[in-house]
C-alpha cells in the first residue's frame, strides 16, 4: 500500500509534473548550467538533498506548529528562513567533514537558497497534499516522496540538457538564436515530449 503511494508520488512528480518543464521552477540553474555534466550532477545532487530535508522540516513545522497555533499565514516567511538556515547548516557540516564532498556538491549549496524549486516544493506540499484531516505521518510520507521525485526530475532534465548544450555549442545556430533563445526552444520541445507522458497514471 505505502509502496504504491511512494511510486505514484515519484512518477507523477518526476515525469508528469516535471519541476522544470511543466512547473517552471528552477529555470535559472537550468538555463545557466554549464555544459559540463559533472557540474549538472553536483548541482542536482545538492538540490535533491536539500529539497528532501527541507520538505520534511517545513511540512512538520506547518502541521505541528503553524497549524496547531492558528498561524498558517506566516508560512512563507517561516519556510524561507528554514530553507536558508538549512542550507547554511548543511554547507558548514560538509565543509567541516569532507573536503571531497564539498568539492563536488558543497560549492553549489550557496546558490540553492534563491533556487525557487526548493521553496516551490515546500509551498506545493502545503497546498496540494496537506489537509486538516490527514494524519501527520501519512502526509509527511507523501511530502517526502514528492520531494524525492521532484529532485530526481530536476536532475534528469539538468543532466539531459547539459548533454544537449554540448551538441548545441558545436552546431551552427543563427546569431540571433545563440545562447538563451535556442535553449528555451529546445526546452519547449522537451516539454512537448513530456506532455505525452501525462497518461501514465
Amino acid at each position: 500500500m505505502s509502496f504504491t503511494i511512494f511510486a505514484t508520488a515519484i512518477i507523477s512528480a518526476m515525469l508528469i509534473n516535471n519541476v522544470i518543464l511543466s512547473q517552471f521552477l528552477g529555470i535559472c540553474p537550468f538555463l545557466g548550467v554549464s555544459k559540463k555534466s559533472s557540474a549538472a550532477i553536483g548541482m542536482s545532487a545538492a538540490v535533491l538533498f536539500v529539497m528532501v530535508i527541507s520538505s520534511a522540516v517545513t511540512y512538520t513545522l506547518y502541521d505541528l506548529v503553524l497549524y496547531q497555533y492558528g498561524i498558517p499565514y506566516i508560512s512563507t516567511i517561516a519556510f524561507i528562513l528554514v530553507i536558508a538556515s538549512l542550507v547554511q547548516f548543511v554547507e558548514m557540516f560538509i565543509k567541516k567533514t569532507s573536503k571531497s564532498l564539498y568539492k563536488s556538491l558543497g560549492i553549489y549549496l550557496p546558490l540553492i537558497t534563491t533556487n525557487c524549486a526548493i521553496l516551490g516544493v515546500s509551498e506545493g506540499n502545503i497546498t496540494n497534499i496537506w489537509t486538516e484531516t490527514m494524519p501527520y505521518w501519512e502526509g509527511l510520507f507523501i511530502a517526502v516522496s514528492t520531494a524525492v521525485g521532484t529532485g530526481l526530475g530536476f536532475g534528469l532534465i539538468i543532466f539531459a540538457f547539459s548533454s544537449i548544450r554540448e551538441k548545441l555549442d558545436a552546431s551552427n545556430v543563427p546569431a540571433a538564436w545563440k545562447g538563451v533563445p535556442i535553449s528555451l526552444v529546445v526546452a519547449g520541445i522537451m516539454s512537448l515530449a513530456f506532455l505525452g507522458l501525462a497518461g501514465i497514471i
Binding site: 521552477l25 512563507t76 524561507i80 521553496l119 516551490g120
Partner: peptide
C-alpha cells in the same frame, strides 16, 4: 505558488 515565490 508563484505568489509566495516572489521571495526568491
Amino acid at each position: 505558488v508563484f505568489l509566495p515565490l516572489i521571495v526568491v
